[in-house]
Write a protein that binds this DNA or RNA. Sequence first.
DNA 1: GCCTTTTTTCATCATCGGCTGAAATTACAT
DNA 2: ATGTAATTTCAGCCGATGATGAAAAAAGGC
Lengths: 247, 247
Amino acid sequence: MDASAETRARKPPASRKIAGRGRPSRSDDKVNYKEIILDGAEHLFAQHGFHGVTTRQVAVEAGVDVALVHYYFGTKRGLFDAVFARRAEILNAARLASLDAYERDNAGALTPMGAIAAFIDPMIDISLTGGPGWKSYFALVAQVNNTPAWGGVTMTRFFDPVVHRLIDVLGLAMPQAREQELYWGYQFLTGAMMLCVSETGRIDLLSEGACRSSDLEAIRHRLTGYCAAGFCALVESQPSVTSLSAT
Amino acid sequence: MDASAETRARKPPASRKIAGRGRPSRSDDKVNYKEIILDGAEHLFAQHGFHGVTTRQVAVEAGVDVALVHYYFGTKRGLFDAVFARRAEILNAARLASLDAYERDNAGALTPMGAIAAFIDPMIDISLTGGPGWKSYFALVAQVNNTPAWGGVTMTRFFDPVVHRLIDVLGLAMPQAREQELYWGYQFLTGAMMLCVSETGRIDLLSEGACRSSDLEAIRHRLTGYCAAGFCALVESQPSVTSLSAT
DNA sequence: GCCTTTTTTCATCATCGGCTGAAATTACAT
DNA sequence: ATGTAATTTCAGCCGATGATGAAAAAAGGC
């Protein structure tokens, strides 16, 4: 009784600063519950999927009332979409910059390996240095990627431009490659990569500790070489294009 | 009123034969609701995941009362596990037979490509000829494979023996390969393969129709060659083993 | 200090969802 | 036909869940 009374005190100011102001958050040092909710939701959605999480769990995780979640995001779906969209732009920008830089600095000497590295590295780097939020985010994307019901549409909506950019650079590196081979090659690449960044711990169990899901550096160069060789094999075994000479 | 009365008639014998008997189903031509429930659950779980499906939906899909679902499987989790386990044995047996046959018929001339084909082909063949239930099942496995919370454990529990068999054969085909490279190579392989069999339609959208998720024959030879080349690249770029000459 | 706007909580609704007990139905053995 | 055991349905409990309206609290402008 007494304890519960204390618990339900208006708002235990506890550690966090108190929020609530007129103008939308001006990126001050003040607490931003909207972001805190997104963080909590990101973590939970990544671990249990959309249907495996309740708005109340999100509220608890964020230390907030359920109503606040709906105040900011309307519906549960809206919350999920906000989580998904939040980091997509940043990731896309990083990848585009990486691909641009690669093409600029290696004009005339583009290789499949280089293009793939330019695509993969930003993700690995962010996962290594971006903090736990990013790790959750990647696991979430991996899950969406494998969701039959709406995964295809969602991935397409958020990530297609960057992927097409990758395909372009790969096309420059392998001028004789057919379009389909590049698309299939990307499909294999993304399947492998997404499984890695979701860090399910499978390989740890399978290899009895010889490999660790969390060892992103081990993944980075292996995945790059693996896929580069795969792309080359795809192109080499494609039905021969009769005349190759350009110009 | 009248229509609803007709609807709630004891049991509209409709098309299906009426079930209910003493001894457990003796594989007659009679209806087996247990299997029908599993089929429905498989379909729904594959599409929406464990938490995205209610036992009531499963009951409707199977044309059965909810209570029957619990009568047969106890809990929703029990139902899910039953779905997951049902086809695992068959798939494992087919893969083991394929790997055994490959090793027997090609003793002394084992190749990475051959080993990988022996692992992949049964899945592709079953997906092509096994009917829609199998397609659902593969999509389900793909989803579990990418589930951070419990995917690793589940995959390990059901599929590890076959995977270790594959690793063994790959080790015979590439004696100089280190254990870790084989495990990582398998991780990439399974990520790519699972994404393909979950048929999310992503590549259809991405390629604007140039590639089709459902085109398993296109996947079969491409994925095999891609991964075979990938494995070789992994092994070639591994820290050099100082002395290689066997015997 | 007041007024306005925004943020946060409280209390609650209507529905859903997993599950269960008991009755009804069926199949089979004798 | 009668009894027995397995199957199937009915009806409902009870907690959880998505969502909402209104009140309270906080922030800022003046």
